[in-house]
Design a protein around this nucleic acid. Structure first.
Lengths: 208, 208, 208, 208
DNA sequence: AATGAATGAGGATTCATTCAT
DNA sequence: AATGAATGAATCCTCATTCAT
């Protein structure tokens, strides 16, 4: 499927089937440990069909990553109140991120690892960058109005992105056993405390 | 080399040569992308010799991991003042960790990825666990004496471990361009702020 | 299309489209390197359609070969003056062959390779055989009347067929850069010189 | 075997074994129809070993071609009397070539086809070019001294190369059933007749 | 200790051909 | 007639590991 192929509705369904099967398997055993045969077997189709829909295994993986990135960002956007103050919005975004990641654990357990394979460094980092930049803008605004500690905004932004990421990871790997909502709330608090310029502000944001 | 082998001094040198070559390559291209041939080639010896010194590629990797874990922990221990208060000690440990990781970047770029391969989950997680438990004890003590926010101590400990790890990662991957010391100081502040029960305490710890 | 199919005029057009596309591609990249997909793509139709018009890729190739053989032979026949003496007719035939091959280079670049594939040895050789036999009869006649050197007639005939083929090849592959007509004339001379019983005869035939 | 590998005598033997097996198979069924498995099977070694000695199947083929080219040229050189006149030397070379090709039929049946595969066009043509240039120089000399017909020397040279090649081909494919020596003599005569400036010269060269 | 050689179980990908609609 | 989808056999190549010297 080098060039964009026109797919019939049946074809689209099949493609989705394959993507889903692959996503599951990647999550279960990792990218390298998943063979094309495994994917098509799970999807219940012949090996050759894989190549009707995808150029290579790597291409499918990239598809998968980009698709999910988009969804995460949408989820974040939807959770943020554009009229709220910066720290508040970061808080909302962090909670939404954790929640989303928890409910798509199978995917993020795969993605979280930026270094999974050198050949994917680009796609994988890109997602982190976008997220960090989004947060960075808010951090800068917060610093400007005095609600966020006066440090390098990008540096703080990475702290947020990192916290969301690693708490997600510890949760997925069963080392932090709690409900997604509870975890999301905790991470929200964690993030706010690490950024807030003073107790007052932190308390205000967290109690709103 | 199934059983522990007594090595002559020359033999030990050879072994070290191989370990070093492997460490470099693993860091450069990752575990999977590093072939045994690459390792022996870089070490300048014949392929067969690898198996005189190591059982398998995986065994070498485990060796490498454990060895470095130990060193990191030693560096942390050395940096911590046993008479200081808990939050202070966490602060010292975090700074030392970041500093150590920065100066051993090539190794940690490999290690940071807990999911690099299912077969290594155990060794890789173990290091995190040890670190988290160390921190957890301090957090619990801090909570008990009121200097650390009253949350699940293990959860907070993971926050510290995560921050140290992620900032190390962002630094290694060139997205946070600053001197190791500077970064270490920043992460120290980040960690303290996210844990401190109130501003007062944070300020005190950071100014000491 | 196992059995001969009655084709509507539109169908015939489609079929021709496919044949043409195939001929081009075979010439450009060779038989093996041409995929069915390439053919239908160039013809602008769907893959499945190929098999409505042809049984297999090999069948199309055979069709193509036989069709063009026939045309070459017709061209040769048309160029030969039946009343002329044998060597003269060989001369005319050789010139016509070279000229025809030059103007159908794309096709002959494919055909010339008798060993292109074991499965086609039969069709491919057959053309050579027919040509060789045609020439052989003339050579025999020439020998009988003393205008052609007294050697095994078939052997000499192969010399003619070979020369025509090889010069065509060198011309197609750009190593003999000259106009088709000029080349044809040269090959005509070459052939006559290699067959003629003596200078006298050669001069006579070539000056006629 | 990307870089030149140091081979033990045993290794060299193995490599030769593989080359020989490949040469046989290529000749029997052609390049494409010969699988790596077939080669190693015939050599009686494991599949992986092939790649210890060769980078790819194509690389082995190129090796094979170049090696044999060299040998053919050596055989030609050895047969030519450097003090003889040009046409005489062409005559000697042509006979030697046909003889050599006959006794290495298995190889030349493979090689003769310049277009066997687009990827080999370069190596394959190169051999023809070298041969053609060798002959061309002699033809030019012959023209200069008036013993060879006054035509484009390169064009005539291709005629010689072509004749040697296609008579070899017809012989290999069983369409010209005669002893190699006999064939060589015939082709020698054919070539001389097609080049000689006049009967006199042809007769002189052929009777010497 | 050290080397070059040998093994063989994979795994990705290609492509002619067939099928359902 | 025409299309997109589906099949699966076939083949190259990789690489950890083992072996004989």
């Amino acid at each position: 499927m080098s060039e964009a192929r026109r797919l019939t509705s049946q074809g689209l369904e099949r493609k989705t089937q394959l993507i889903d099967a692959a996503a599951e398997l990647f999550a279960e055993r990792g990218y390298d440990e998943t063979r094309i045969v495994d994917i098509v077997e799970r999807a219940g189709v012949a090996k050759g069909l894989f190549y009707w829909y995808f150029d290579t295994k790597a291409a499918l993986f990239r598809d998968l990553v980009e698709e999910n990135r988009l969804r995460l960002r949408r989820a974040q956007g939807a959770a943020i109140d554009p009229t709220a103050e910066p720290l508040q919005r970061i808080h909302q975004g962090a909670k939404a991120s954790v929640a989303y990641m928890s409910s798509h654990a199978h995917f993020f357990s795969l993605i979280e690892v930026e270094n999974i394979d050198k050949q994917f460094t680009d796609v994988l980092r890109q997602g982190t960058e976008v997220h960090a930049n989004d947060v960075c803008a808010l951090v800068a605004a917060g610093i400007a109005e005095g609600t966020i500690r006066d440090e390098d905004p990008l540096l703080l932004a990475y702290g947020v992105v990192g916290a969301v990421g690693y708490y997600g990871h510890f949760h997925r790997t069963g080392r932090v056993a709690m409900e997604p909502d509870e975890l999301a709330a905790f991470v929200g608090r964690f993030v706010v405390c690490s950024l807030a310029a003073d107790e007052e502000i932190a308390r205000r944001v967290l109690s709103s």
